Amino acid sequence: MIHQATFLFISGAEIAFILFIAIMVFGADKLPEIARGLGKGMRTLKDATNDIKHEITKSAENHGIDTSLTSDIKKELDEVKDDLDDFTGSVKRKF
């Protein structure tokens, strides 16, 4: 049996079907404009979340709150994740 990678539990055939429906509804000439608009919207959202994170960190530092704790926890979690990936890599079965 062949194991296919999925993106958000959507298979390749389902993605192709969604693209086919999008082309039928919007037309091939409008899809690049729609994709461009979605990309700009996602970029704006990412910039806004980064600004909010920066403001929260700045405010916490101004009030004397230690923000290094979260980075230390993140480092520890990343190390555990890497160790777990190393361990499970040798145990995984290929189907």
Rank of each mutant, 00 (worst) to 15 (best):
R43L: 11
K94F: 04
L69G: 12
E33G: 15
D78C: 02
I15A: 13
K75V: 07
A60Q: 06
I65H: 01
I65A: 03
I52R: 09
T57D: 07
L8M: 13
S71Y: 03
I34Q: 02
L8C: 10
A13Q: 07
I73P: 00
T6V: 12
N50W: 02
G89N: 09
D78L: 10
K92R: 15
K94L: 09
A48E: 06
K74A: 11
T88I: 15
D83P: 00
I21Y: 01
E55K: 10
M42H: 00
I52S: 00
T6Y: 11
L84W: 09
I65T: 07
H54P: 00
I23W: 10
L19C: 15
A48G: 05
L31G: 01
D85C: 02
G27L: 05
V80H: 06
L84C: 07
K75N: 03
A48F: 01
S71W: 03
T49P: 00
T6M: 15
K94T: 09
T57N: 10
T67Q: 01
E55S: 02
F95A: 10
L84M: 10
I21L: 15
V25P: 01
F26W: 10
K53I: 05
F26P: 02
T44R: 03
D83R: 15
I2D: 10
S59L: 12
H63D: 11
E79K: 14
L19I: 14
E55M: 10
F95R: 11
F87Q: 04
A28V: 08
A35Y: 09
D72C: 05
E79Q: 09
G39D: 07
F87S: 07
K53S: 11
I73N: 00
I52V: 12
E76K: 14
I65K: 00
F9H: 14
V91S: 07
K40V: 05
K92I: 14
T44L: 05
D83V: 06
D86T: 04
D86R: 14
G41D: 03
H63I: 00
D83A: 14
D85S: 04
L45Y: 08
S59V: 04
G12D: 11
A60M: 10
D66F: 02
K58H: 08
F17L: 14
E55P: 00
R93I: 12
D66Y: 00
K40H: 05
D83G: 09
A13P: 01
I65P: 03
M42D: 06
S90N: 13
S90H: 13
L8P: 03
N62K: 14
I65W: 02
I18Y: 05
S11Q: 11
G39T: 11
N50S: 13
A13Y: 08
D51M: 07
F20S: 12
N62M: 05
A16F: 04
K58D: 10
I21P: 01
E79P: 00
A35G: 06
E55V: 03
S11N: 15
I52E: 08
D51H: 08
D51Q: 12
F17R: 15
D66C: 03
D29L: 04
G39A: 05
T88Q: 09
V80R: 06
N50K: 15
T88A: 00
